[in-house]
């Protein structure tokens, strides 16, 4: 296993890693955004955001609601294409490919960059079919046995296998909220993505279910690059290694999570973290 870019050492505040871009530069960059602007019709929702996201770690986007963090997240697998009148400019690189390039197939992109949504949204199908859906449409399994193996592995990785292994044929909508969200994570994992985007994945869950998802996220960063939008600073502090603070469509500050929470550069970050607004 590669070392995560900024290992969560306790009290590891050091002056060297204080540089905003510096800490991330150490690990290979998985996603790199350069001067991204997003417009909804006339509204300028994202203003010139540039950020590098290191591989196999958790990056949290925080900020007050309406600050554009979800919008920016949705640019990374081009979910914004689905919104009428939404226009994205600038470059977003996944590895070294511009995802907005004409030659890029959005299907392939979304298979590489999976997504977990704010509200658990299992399909009204069985648990098994929910997980098998991605592999099935992408043709990842040639035989029934291969599919079974993918489903089992995905559910195991999502820490759901033990709870559902005896009722794979039951509808996914019958699970509890936390289980549904882990099912959605398993569904995303089943396609073997490289990056997983999570848009406030715990906002609809109770604290216990939230804790389980957070544990799971921590597990998953061994293999996946994870970007999580959260409105909870505590959550960002618990699960992420890097944090990016958005405010009114601007990326105010990025850096390793410890620094951001202990010693932010920007006054706005400071105010937000200390609870002056939000």
């Amino acid at each position: 296993m590669d070392q995560p870019a900024s290992p969560p050492t306790k009290m590891g505040v050091s002056v060297t890693s204080r540089a905003t871009e510096g800490s991330a530069a150490a690990a290979p960059v998985k996603v790199s955004a350069q001067n991204v602007d997003v417009f909804y019709g006339e509204k300028h929702a994202i203003k010139g955001v540039s950020i590098n996201i290191p591989e196999r770690s958790v990056t949290a986007f925080i900020g007050p609601s309406g600050c554009g963090k979800s919008t920016f997240l949705r640019c990374i697998n081009r979910m914004n294409d689905l919104i009428e009148g939404c226009r994205v400019t600038g470059r977003i690189l996944l590895d070294d490919d511009d995802i907005n390039d004409r030659s890029v197939d959005v299907v392939l992109l979304r298979a590489r960059v999976g997504m977990v949504f704010q509200k658990p949204n299992p399909f009204p199908k069985s648990i098994y079919d929910n997980v098998a859906y991605g592999p099935k449409i992408h043709g990842l399994a040639r035989t029934r046995a291969e599919m079974d193996a993918i489903v089992e592995q995905s559910l195991r990785k999502a820490a759901l296998w033990d709870e559902v292994k005896d009722r794979l044929k039951e509808p996914g909508t019958g699970l509890s909220g936390g289980q549904q969200q882990r099912l959605c994570i398993a569904r995303a994992i089943a396609v073997s993505p490289e990056v997983i985007l999570m848009d406030e994945p715990c906002s609809a869950l109770d604290p216990i279910a939230t804790a389980r998802i957070e544990e799971l996220i921590d597990e998953l960063r061994q293999n996946y690059t994870i970007i999580i939008v959260t409105h909870s600073m505590q959550q960002a502090a618990r699960v992420s290694q890097q944090t990016a603070f958005f405010h009114l469509g601007n990326l105010v500050e990025t850096g390793s999570t410890e620094f951001m929470f202990t010693n932010p550069h920007d006054q706005r970050t400071q105010d937000y973290i200390t609870g002056r607004f939000g």
């Binding site: 979304r110 949504f117 859906y133 449409i137």
Partner: peptide, 24 residues
Amino acid sequence: SLRDGSLGLGATKSETIRKVILPA
């Protein structure tokens, strides 16, 4: 959300319609 869930997995529009929206 169901539509987004399917598209987010990389399904094409027609796959989403045929395999998620219509069954639902």
